[in-house]
């Protein structure tokens, strides 16, 4: 999987309360949530974000609440990938589970500025900064995580087991 997009550059500790404020959590509709992504941190984001754009953040990205509404909102807004120096675990898991590509790469973060165009090869974990001409290598995913990515998300990875069990209920009727 390859992506190319402009950089939205944010700092450390970007929490899920700013990724999607709680006042919008009375729905889980991705289209509604996407309208309010990051609005308390950067009101321009939803107005100007384009499909393929990349969010680049510092350490502890996605800290705070477990709300999956956060990766749902930024994915639906068109973001192709999030690159950070480090991720909070729940956000990391939620993103992998949903199929929102994320990469951990402090070097790429340190040298990325707002508006830089990044080209990302997810399988190889490489980040090429078109604007500066530099290439960076992200940390590889653990094997268990790769399995979920290859299956196309967590629910796909367990679908067969669930459907086999459901079939036994049907035949027992």
């Amino acid at each position: 999987m390859q992506f190319e997009g402009r950089t939205w550059r944010y700092g450390d500790d970007i929490n899920t309360d700013v990724l999607i404020p709680a006042r919008y959590l009375s729905t889980s509709d991705p289209v509604e949530l996407a309208k309010h992504a990051l609005e308390d941190l950067d009101p321009n984001f939803v107005k100007e974000v384009q499909v393929g754009d990349v969010i680049v953040g510092g350490k502890n990205f996605g800290c705070g609440s477990s709300r999956e509404h956060a990766p749902i909102a930024i994915k639906e807004a068109g973001v192709s990938c999030v690159i950070a120096s480090s991720f909070a675990r729940i956000f990391f898991r939620n993103s992998i589970n949903l199929g929102l590509p994320i990469l951990e790469c402090p070097e790429a973060v340190a040298h990325a500025e707002a508006g830089d165009v990044l080209r990302i090869d997810l399988a190889a974990g490489t980040i090429f900064n078109n604007t500066t001409g530099q290439t960076y290598q992200a940390a590889p995913f653990p094997e268990g995580v790769m399995k979920i990515i290859r299956a196309g998300g967590l629910m796909n990875s367990i679908k067969e087991e669930v459907q086999a069990r459901e079939a036994t209920y049907a035949s027992a009727k």
Partner: peptide
């Protein structure tokens, strides 16, 4: 530990 909705769904299912 805290997890997200899809993790919860997977645990509920399996």
């Amino acid at each position: 530990t805290g997890i997200g909705s899809t993790d919860l769904a997977a645990a509920m299912a399996t």
